[in-house]
């Protein structure tokens, strides 16, 4: 039981460190956002579960914390990415011909919605 706990805490620490490094090194906002969100969410969940394995009486409360992190952190990052896209923050593109795919998809959805409203 103890070795599982130490192993999980080590993995979580490495992922938290990589999340910080990714935030510093990535070139534009959206890549930085995915580095910060995914790596740090996995790191925090893993290290908190490791503490739960080390101290078995605390396992229920640590599991509740893990569930709340898994709900809350991707939610906030998704809201942040959507808000920055609406605020005209463009990603770093190598060739300019790609365009904005998210905008096109959203226009298509909007048109379908209007058609259904007419029916």
């Amino acid at each position: 039981m103890n070795y599982i706990g130490y192993f999980l805490i080590s993995i979580g620490t490495i992922f938290l460190f990589l999340g910080g490094l990714g935030i510093l090194r990535m070139p534009d906002f959206y890549t930085r956002l995915q580095a910060g969100t995914k790596a740090s969410t996995l790191g925090a969940m893993s290290s908190i579960l490791g503490i739960g394995f080390l101290q078995p009486e605390w396992f229920i409360k640590t599991f509740i914390i893990v569930v709340f992190i898994a709900i809350a952190n991707p939610l906030s990052s998704h809201a942040l990415a959507r808000g920055s896209h609406k605020a005209k923050q463009m990603p770093f593109l190598k060739d300019e011909k790609i365009g904005d795919a998210y905008e096109a998809v959203e226009e298509k959805l909007h048109k379908n919605q209007k058609k259904e409203d007419k029916k």
Partner: peptide, 24 residues
């Protein structure tokens, strides 16, 4: 402003892990 908010978010997630380890 988005970069700073993202740094705040990551700092808060790191803080949760550190607080649990300190409590242990």
């Amino acid at each position: 402003a988005s970069d700073r908010v993202m740094a705040l978010d990551t700092l808060s997630v790191m803080l949760i892990a550190v607080l649990v380890i300190l409590g242990f």
